[in-house]
Design a protein around this nucleic acid. Structure first.
Length: 953
RNA sequence: GCGGGUGUGGUGAAAUUGGUAGACACGCUAGACUUAGGAUCUAGUGCCGUGAGGUGUGGGGGUUCGAGUCCCUCCACCCGCACCA
């Protein structure tokens, strides 16, 4: 019998490695299939039981495909650049390269213990200079291209340079941030710096001034979630919105294609919706308003051009360029004060701001349709980055405008009559237009159309689509990331390095602290940052999303030194057929990867327009998060047992994490608690060292060096109930369950099958070890089929029809379930099969040999062992997957539920070839049927072939 | 607020096109074998009812011979976005 799982696991792991059975190469004779897992960030905590869920599913799928005749690419690697390693380095002084390397080794060890069929010869990691050479190269290509909206693809920047020289930019249709219009003559007169500045506004990778959360005291830029109430979370220092020159990627150029592309890929509904929302396309119209007594115009974007006659004032974002120019001297003070107030807030705070704020510039705009003068205000509810950063305010038909107008006493003109639509709110785009000249009497939908036409006709604007998607900041003032392949010359003009000079390697240092004035640690490494007298390097680094934006392509040809991947490999593997990963990457990674892929497609470097054909989001395996309650605002710490505290009182307490290992009754479903032992562990863990307890009923007093701690509970026993919730498993929540312990006890195959058995792959569920016994028993029984009296015993007798039916039913179901990613039901059906074969005492080779192949994607170790014992020399994983034969599934008899008026009243078996009329006749004879139809007449009898019989009375 | 998703036993969950609701497991109950059981095996297990029977897929309504599945409506929970003009 197979008893010692780790023994066979080690044996076969070594065998697979030695014989390279999962190594894959281009093979034109077979159809290709590419299965990819989202590669992990190798954190110091190692894998927990949640990580492998998706990996197991993709492994089963890969193995199934491989055994079904496909050439399967199934690689693994590491997303190795990133902040945690750098934070760790700041705390410990251990170089990120070192800790990352150790963590990767640990991950790799754990992954191979789980029996995954990765081709490890293709392993990659993003912090490898051989890898990021090509990340940098793609960046240089983005830098060298602009997006031509006429050809609808990326074109080389030199093409644009030529156009500018010949005809200026008047006819150029391109994605840009350039507001200047110039002729060829003007272009040719521009200085080199001026020309380069203009080109920068067209490049797909470009530099511009952006606003960031800047904390002077910490000397760094902070992410939004690191800032609370205008001060830094760490240290409590003031944070301001600071303009800094940063690299950006012009993802907005691809907004339309990123949106349209969603139509043709097989992703979940919710993921597509998230991406659609993120791109946020809205159809509308840009309109130019003149400014009284000024040459300038205000460009606004609106989706409600129909309400333009109700526009009684304008609002600019406080950062809008025109604010300074149009503010009248009398209003200067008010505006200055308001702008300062806004600048002190973070973006998040501004979004959270509920009260209405604003200031009057003193200037007036002129409505292009009725020449009416309207005041120009500024207000934080208008966002600088959305649309044009300016709006026409229609207080009668927009809630925010209405609140603003009411607060500042501005005019309100009704323009939409909603009386025809009772219950309609301002949000609903319905009603009949009034007080609006030529638009009067039109329905909103038609009025928008007519207004658009008129505005275009008089040349005061045009119909445009606007996007929520923004060009995201691509600069990080951090050490552990890809250096930019950029040198600045004496004039400050950015130049990319040619491919021969790539990679620009990350210089070594032991000083990872953020620099001053918003500079990265690299700026301190002088001889690197300033390689010669006339040139200096870009010292920011790229964000983590850089390396993951194209890694799926590198796996196709991971060791290529002359290209990111050979054209032969790219044309063979094309793109990822199945991608499995968490939905937390719904926007950042998946949006950027699509963007880069489309860019490479434009360049003719990849044959497909989308990188990931089918994508499945595996659910999260959640943990139980335990908290202990600490009363707020007390001199000495007071802990309370959770059962003492009502929901309303909870806000007076701080919830502190308790390590899951200290808690009792976790897993039983009963309320969880800390016993005296657990409490002691907790206090030692939290550094209340050498605590001594005094316990009296209901109250524990704890004394340790200089500290008095009181613990209150409700019962007579020293039991402190904790608060439990289900949530993400993570090191920082102290609730991580390591798979190593589970596999050691039950075996890897059992762990794999149990994770699949838990439920549908896309669903999140809490980890619960309770049920694993069921799978463990099943595997033992399965193995038991091959043994009698502890000896391997399989015979060559002909199987019975019944045995074949059981076997082929299972084969059919498992094949279908794998294709549908329904792994939980596949496991169930194998359980059913084992139960049946046990009843039949079947140990026939013709049944059991296909079963080994059938189960092999799920249980790669046990199946390999049995396969060998069945006398095979080659690996079961190189054999073919069983296919069912319909002829074994034919039923001689069919059981029909007999229903009267839809209620099941009995079950009858008929020969499979019984005619409909015969069935009806026989059913009418049944005793119990009489009973149910007594006194009633049969209206009709419905016979659904192979399904059921229903008598209608 | 907007968009998306999910609601089925004590628990995780099954259920082709509308066709036997609760497969498969966990847990629980009883029994067998045992020095023992956190091993193994057998039987039972949605709920109410001794029973016949009734009832049952978040609530209400509808279509249908027949609804977990389709339609309307309400509720709860989860996720995403949220001054998006």
């Amino acid at each position: 019998m197979i008893k010692n799982y780790s023994e066979i696991e080690n044996k076969w792991k070594a065998y697979w490695k030695e014989n390279q059975i999962y190594k894959v190469d281009i093979d034109q004779s077979k159809p290709k299939y590419y299965v990819l897992d989202m590669f992990p960030y190798p954190s110091g905590a190692g894998l927990h039981v949640g990580h492998p869920l998706g990996y197991i599913a993709s492994d089963i799928f890969s193995r199934h495909k491989r055994m079904s005749g496909y050439n399967v690419l199934h690689p693994m690697g590491f997303d190795a650049f990133g902040l945690p390693a750098e934070e760790y380095a700041l705390q410990t002084g251990i170089h990120p390269a070192e800790s990352t390397k150790d963590n990767m080794a640990q991950y790799k060890e754990q992954l191979s213990n789980l029996g995954f069929s990765y081709d490890w010869s293709r392993e990659l990691y993003t912090c490898d200079p051989k890898y990021y050479k090509w990340t940098q190269w793609i960046f240089t290509e983005l830098f060298d291209h602009y997006y031509d909206q006429a050809s609808n693809k990326a074109e080389h920047i030199d093409t644009l340079r030529e156009i500018f020289e010949k005809e200026g930019n008047k006819k150029v249709l391109a994605a840009c941030t350039c507001e200047q219009e110039f002729s060829s003559a003007e272009w040719n007169q521009f200085s080199k710096t001026e020309q380069e500045d203009i080109l920068m506004c067209y490049r797909l990778a470009y530099r511009k001034v952006g606003y960031v959360n800047w904390c002077e005291a910490l000397g760094t830029v902070l992410a939004n979630d690191q800032v609370k109430d205008g001060i830094s979370e760490r240290g409590g220092h003031p944070v301001i919105q600071k303009a800094m020159t940063q690299w950006y990627l012009r993802i907005t150029a691809y907004a339309d294609r990123l949106l349209d592309g969603l139509e043709n890929i097989d992703w979940s509904h919710s993921l597509k919706t998230i991406q659609r929302n993120w791109i946020g396309r809205s159809e509308g119209c840009s309109v130019f308003f003149d400014i009284k007594g000024s040459e300038d115009q205000i460009e606004i974007f609106t989706t409600r051009a129909d309400t333009i006659f109700g526009a009684t004032y304008m609002v600019l974002a406080p950062e809008h360029d025109l604010v300074e120019q149009i503010t009248t001297p009398e209003q200067q003070d008010a505006i200055n004060r308001y702008v300062a107030y806004v600048k002190a807030k973070t973006e998040v705070e501004r979004m959270a701001e509920k009260s209405v704020t604003g200031a009057f510039t003193g200037a007036y705009a002129i409505n292009p349709l009725n020449n009416k003068e309207v005041p120009i205000w500024i207000g934080e509810y208008v966002l600088k980055d959305y649309g044009t950063g300016a709006i026409m305010a229609v207080p009668s038909d927009d809630n925010r405008d209405k609140l603003f107008a009411e607060k500042f006493g501005l005019e309100i003109i009704d323009v939409v009559d909603k009386s025809k639509y009772p219950g309609a709110t301002l949000k609903d785009k319905i009603g009949v237009i009034i007080n609006s000249d030529f638009l009067n009497g039109l329905e909103v939908k038609d009025a928008i159309q007519v207004a658009h036409e008129r505005i275009e006709e008089i040349g005061r604007g045009k119909v445009v689509a606007n996007f929520k998607l923004r060009d995201a900041n691509f600069s990080r003032q951090r050490y552990w990331g890809e250096p930019f392949p950029i040198l600045f010359d004496e004039d400050g003009i950015a130049h990319t390095l040619p491919i021969e000079q790539l990679p620009v390697e990350l210089p070594d240092t032991s000083d990872f602290k953020p620099g001053h004035g918003g500079q990265s640690p690299l700026a301190r490494i002088k001889d690197w940052a300033k390689p010669n007298a006339s040139e200096s390097r870009e010292t920011d680094t790229m964000p983590a999303v850089a390396g993951s934006s194209w890694y799926s392509l590198r796996y196709m040809d991971p060791h290529n030194e002359t290209a990111f991947a050979s054209q032969e490999s790219v044309n063979y593997w094309e793109s990822v057929d199945l991608y499995i990963g968490g939905s937390e990457h719904a926007v950042a990674h998946l949006m950027y990867a699509r963007f880069w892929h489309k860019f490479l497609f434009d360049k003719g470097l990849v044959p497909t327009d989308e990188p990931f054909e089918k994508l499945i989001n595996q659910g999260m395996i959640q943990g139980i998060i335990e908290h202990i309650l600490l009363k707020k605002d007390t001199d000495t710490p007071e802990f309370y047992s959770a059962d003492l505290i009502s929901k309303e009182e909870l806000e007076n307490f701080t919830k502190l994490y308790v390590h899951i290992d200290f808690v009792q009754d976790y897993e039983s479903g009963n309320p969880t608690y800390l016993d005296l032992e657990g409490l002691k562990k907790y206090f030692v863990w939290r550094k209340f060292e050498q605590a001594t307890f005094n316990y009296e009923a209901g109250q524990l007093t704890l004394q340790s060096a200089g500290k008095n701690v009181t613990v209150l509970n409700s019962s007579g026993e020293p039991k402190i109930y904790t608060i439990s919730e289900v949530g993400k498993m993570s090191k920082s929540r102290y609730n991580v369950i390591n798979p190593d312990a589970v596999t050691a006890q039950y075996g890897t195959d059992c762990f794999r099958m149990y994770e699949m058995f838990l439920g549908p792959i896309e669903q999140s569920k809490p980890w619960d070890i309770q049920g694993i016994d069921g799978v463990s028993k099943f595997l033992k029984r399965f193995i038991g089929l091959y043994y009698s009296d502890e000896k391997f015993s399989v015979n060559d007798e002909q199987p019975s029809a019944n045995e074949l039916k059981v076997s082929h039913t299972c084969i059919k179901k498992v094949n279908a379930d794998i294709i549908n990613f329904s792994f939980n039901t596949a496991v169930s059906s194998m359980m059913v099969c084992v139960n049946e074969l046990r009843k039949l005492k079947c140990n026939k080779r013709e049944i059991l040999e296909p079963f080994v192949r059938l189960i092999s994607p799920f249980a790669p170790f046990i199946s390999e062992e049995l396969w060998q014992q069945l006398g095979h020399k080659s690996s079961v994983h190189l054999s073919t997957y069983p296919q069912h034969d319909e002829k074994h599934l034919v039923e001689d008899t069919i059981s029909y539920p007999i229903c009267i008026n839809g209620k099941k009243r009995g079950l009858e078996t008929f020969a499979a070839d019984t005619s409909r009329d015969d069935i009806i006749a026989q059913v009418k004879q049944l005793n119990y049927v009489d009973k149910w139809i007594e006194g009633k007449t049969i209206k009709k009898v419905i016979v659904v072939p192979n399904r059921m019989v229903n008598i209608v009375v």
